Simulated scan of single mutants.
Amino acid sequence: MYQEKIIKPVSGYLAAAMFFVLLCIAVICFTSENFALGGVLLTVNFVLVMPGLIIVNPNESKVLTLFGQYVGTVKTDGFYWVNPFTSKTKLSLRARNLNGQQLKVNDKMGNPIEIAAVIVWQVNETAKATFAVENYLQYVNIQSEAAVRHLANSFAYDHMEDESAEITLKDGADKVSVLLEQELNERLSRAGIDVIEARISHLAYAQEIASAMLQRQQATAVIAARKLIVEGAVGMVEMALERLSEKNIVDLDEERKAAMVSNLLVVLCGDRNVQPVVNTGTLYN
């Protein structure tokens, strides 16, 4: 409905040259007291020639409308002359950064989190940006916030919340950024906006649960570390018993084996240094 039409108007240098020629002729007419012709030439100059001169800077465009009808868009930088009765709207084509504000939303598991995103975007189709939406800058802000909220609601914060999740907000940053960019392009295509890059710039638990989640993470880390220590200690005890049996160094009954296993596990799994006690008697004293 709002298909962009690229046009290249007449060179503005020719129109400027005509302006100065007509101006000189008008001055000559006034000098020779031919006021009627001089007035006509000045009217043509300042009503038809001069208002049609436009300058298009690099990475800018001019959207032209004539009596409510879209005429076309000038995207090539330069100096041009267009119909003086057209309305000329300047539209920047430069890439822009949107540093989104921190939003407090719930993740997939219902936990309150804080999230924000940085989005790099630019106008791709000037006709849609001008006519399809009321204010394309406001449209980008609102739709970007909606996309970030939807993304946060679709995934868990991390794998502690959902162990079966393939993608989480914390651990799947690259995949999450790709999904966010895709959703933004879908949402902003109506306004002719092209999203170049979108990334999560801030991600954290909300303040009311941050302390509890930190304790949970610490407890999980301690449990994981203890699990590795126990697995290693059991392997070392098993190896010690096998080597003692192979070398026939000492013959232990089941009770002494149990005592030895208990002592070795205490030494290997303890979080503090153990004070050794030397047995100067027999094994059974």
Score class of each variant (00 low, 15 high):
170 K>N: 10
185 N>T: 03
185 N>Y: 08
178 V>K: 15
188 L>W: 11
142 I>W: 04
162 D>W: 06
158 D>I: 15
202 H>P: 01
191 A>K: 01
174 D>C: 00
195 V>T: 05
196 I>R: 08
174 D>M: 10
159 H>I: 11
139 Y>A: 01
146 A>G: 08
178 V>D: 07
177 S>Q: 07
156 A>M: 04
141 N>L: 15
151 L>Q: 01
191 A>R: 02
132 A>L: 08
149 R>N: 13
189 S>T: 09
171 D>V: 06
163 E>N: 13
157 Y>M: 13
191 A>Y: 00
169 L>E: 08
194 D>V: 05
156 A>K: 03
199 R>W: 07
136 Y>G: 12
147 A>N: 03
187 R>K: 04
195 V>Q: 04
166 E>H: 06
137 L>E: 15
194 D>C: 10
175 K>M: 12
159 H>P: 04
177 S>M: 06
131 F>I: 04
153 N>W: 12
141 N>C: 04
199 R>S: 07
176 V>A: 01
143 Q>D: 01
174 D>L: 12
150 H>K: 13
169 L>K: 05
194 D>G: 04
178 V>Q: 14
166 E>F: 00
135 N>I: 00
141 N>M: 09
192 G>D: 07
183 E>G: 01
198 A>K: 05
155 F>I: 12
170 K>D: 06
140 V>L: 02
200 I>N: 10
194 D>A: 11
155 F>M: 13
190 R>F: 06
157 Y>Q: 08
131 F>H: 03
160 M>C: 11
185 N>L: 04
166 E>Y: 02
191 A>E: 03
164 S>Q: 10
151 L>P: 01
162 D>M: 05
200 I>W: 12
144 S>R: 05
179 L>N: 10
174 D>H: 07
169 L>Q: 13
202 H>C: 05
186 E>R: 14
181 E>D: 12
189 S>I: 10
194 D>W: 10
156 A>F: 03
141 N>V: 05
170 K>F: 05
158 D>Y: 08
186 E>N: 13
163 E>L: 05
170 K>L: 14
135 N>W: 11
134 E>H: 06
164 S>M: 02
175 K>A: 14
182 Q>E: 15
140 V>S: 02
194 D>L: 14
138 Q>V: 04
163 E>G: 09
148 V>E: 08
